[in-house]
């Protein structure tokens, strides 16, 4: 992973972005359930944007402002690519983590506003696939599932709900090993259509509004995707990205969901 952004030094980081974004997730323009791969892409895209290397960022900022924006992006990457920092940041900003991840250990109120790595509790809940309400769905725990072949063994067994502090995973380890929750992807066999997506969402106990919040995709688009409403589907260039976001939020296989639905729409539309 030589092309990875540098693993951030464990130094004090600002509590919040200085630019226009409200959260570190907003700085990178990703949803709160963003996977580390997605974070890395977003980090690189964001830097290219503020440095004017992509057309959409041409003369966005004057040279002095670029440094400030770059600092925000670097800090966002440093916080979100680190499991512990991210978990404590999520709690600090009051993310509704309980809808996707196990309820974190309660924090002392005094740490809620100024969260740094040093205020993190001694055990951090790992991001696990199953919230208690989803037990009726049989998770695919078979590592041989062809679409999610782990390149290295997971650093933690999928059933462990806490990480010992001594086994603090580095950024690099996060990047190279499949995240623990990936093992819990559900198999998506057969046609991937709007009803399937709707059932999956309902099985996760998410409303359309909650899914919109998690994916940062506007509700009318989500509705159109579930309704298979060709007229109002997002443009094809965005559709795949949206589906990937949805797959992440629903914790199903991204490739199968996105490709399956795109193929379905292609058949449906012709």
């Amino acid at each position: 992973m030589t092309s990875s952004p540098p693993a951030p030094a464990r130094t004090a980081l600002p509590d919040h972005p200085r630019g226009g974004a409200a959260t570190w997730y907003d700085v990178l323009d990703v949803g709160p359930s963003a996977h580390v791969d997605e974070l890395r892409t977003a980090y690189e895209r964001s830097l290219a944007l503020v440095e004017g290397r992509t057309l959409g960022g041409y003369f966005l900022l004057d040279p002095l402002a670029i440094d400030g924006a770059r600092a925000d992006i670097e800090a966002a990457w440093a916080v979100l690519s680190d499991v512990e920092r991210r978990a404590s940041y999520d709690r600090a900003i009051g993310l509704p983590a309980s809808s996707l991840f196990p309820t974190p250990a309660p924090l002392a109120p005094s740490t809620a506003s100024t969260t740094t790595a040093t205020t993190a509790p001694s055990t951090i809940p790992a991001r696990l696939p199953q919230s208690p309400s989803l037990k009726f769905l049989a998770p695919v725990l078979d590592d041989s599932t062809p679409t999610t072949p782990p390149t290295t063994p997971p650093t933690t067994p999928p059933t462990t709900s806490t990480l010992p502090t001594t086994a603090r995973p580095s950024t690099l380890a996060m990047a190279t090993s499949p995240p623990a929750f990936e093992a819990g992807f559900f198999a998506l066999d057969g046609e991937v259509n709007g009803q399937v997506l709707k059932k999956l969402r309902e099985a996760r106990g998410l409303s359309l509004d909650e899914l919109a919040e998690l994916t940062k995709i506007r509700r009318p688009y989500l509705q159109a995707i579930e309704d298979q409403d060709l007229e109002n589907l997002p443009a094809r260039v965005y559709l795949r990205g949206f589906l990937t976001q949805i797959a992440r939020a629903l914790r199903v296989d991204r490739v199968r969901l996105a490709e399956g639905y795109v193929a379905f729409v292609a058949r449906f539309g012709s």
Binding site: G20, A21, D26, L49, G56, G57, A65, A69
Partner: peptide, 13 residues
Amino acid sequence: VARDMASACRRFL
């Protein structure tokens, strides 16, 4: 380009 611009406006301006 349009999506990048809107996103950049929100995030950095």
